[in-house]
């Protein structure tokens, strides 16, 4: 379970997150949407300790992320993350991208790590690309490798930071399908995305953020059918047109 209580963060005078409260239960998929600069990515980065914050608490399975005594390296093993621009290691093959962390962080033997990596590549549909370098893959393929890389650590949570916004339209679906499968298999997921079809399909909760605040939250249908705030309505009308 991830609990966020009164989380606030600022860069100097700029308030990027204000008083965020949220609880994510095991097995849930939560979609976060909102205009750019609304603090969605920063929120994700606070949860796995990539960004420090000044006020409030983030607690992952009882471990406080903001506590200076917390071993963040250990905490991050539980939380996989997928980025907008894939961020695969360009100097390593697909297989090495996936096996690096299990081998170096968990000490999994090479053979076992590679077997697991092949299994994951099978699952995201591109086992034939194991020996390729990321530069030779399409965007959609790269993003699926990035998902496999995160899953290789057997995380209990997965966070996606606009995983399809850097993709050509015809590649979005292949990535979303992998994500939907994950959600259906019961992975706990936090997804920053503007793919409202995906949100409608798998989200247990949708959060709308603006200017560092959670403006509105709702379950799929309720969120789309009658948004309570003007700001949400305006945002949805732009995105769904």
């Amino acid at each position: 379970m991830i609990e966020i209580r009164n989380l606030s963060k600022s860069y100097g005078r700029l308030q990027v997150l204000s008083d965020i409260n949220e609880v994510i239960q095991r097995g849930q998929t939560v979609v976060i949407c909102g205009p750019s600069g609304s603090g969605k990515s920063t929120l994700l980065r606070c949860i796995n300790g990539l960004e420090p914050f000044q006020k409030g608490e983030v607690i992952v399975d009882g471990i406080s992320v903001g506590d200076p005594k917390t071993n963040l390296y250990k905490l991050r093993q539980k939380i996989g993350m997928v980025f907008q621009r894939f961020e695969l290691y360009p100097h390593m093959t697909v297989l090495k991208n996936i096996t690096l962390a299990p081998m170096k962080v968990k000490g999994v033997p090479r053979k076992q790590a590679e077997e697991k990596a092949m299994e994951l590549l099978e699952r995201v549909g591109i086992p034939e690309k194991a020996g390729e370098y990321p530069a030779n893959l399409s965007g959609g393929q790269q993003q699926r490798v990035a998902i496999a890389r995160a899953l290789a650590m057997e995380p209990e949570y997965m966070m996606f930071d606009e995983p399809t916004s850097a993709l050509d339209p015809e590649m979005i679906q292949e990535v979303l399908e992998v994500m939907m499968d994950l959600a259906r298999e019961g992975m706990t997921m936090l997804v920053v995305t503007h793919e409202m079809g995906f949100a409608r399909e798998v989200a247990d909760e949708i959060i709308f953020m603006d200017a560092g605040r959670i403006v509105e939250r709702g379950t799929g249908d309720e969120f789309f059918r009658n948004p309570k705030h003007d700001r949400t309505r305006e945002f949805l009308s732009q995105i769904l047109k």
Binding site: L50, Y73, R76, M81, F83, E87, Y89, L100, A101, V105
Partner: peptide
């Protein structure tokens, strides 16, 4: 090297020194 590439390495649990050494 982009900040997100380093973040990606960290997010898999690699430490500062491992990230420096391998990435």
């Amino acid at each position: 090297i982009s900040r997100d590439l380093v973040s990606a390495a960290y997010s898999t649990g690699l430490t500062y020194w491992q990230t420096a050494r391998y990435i």
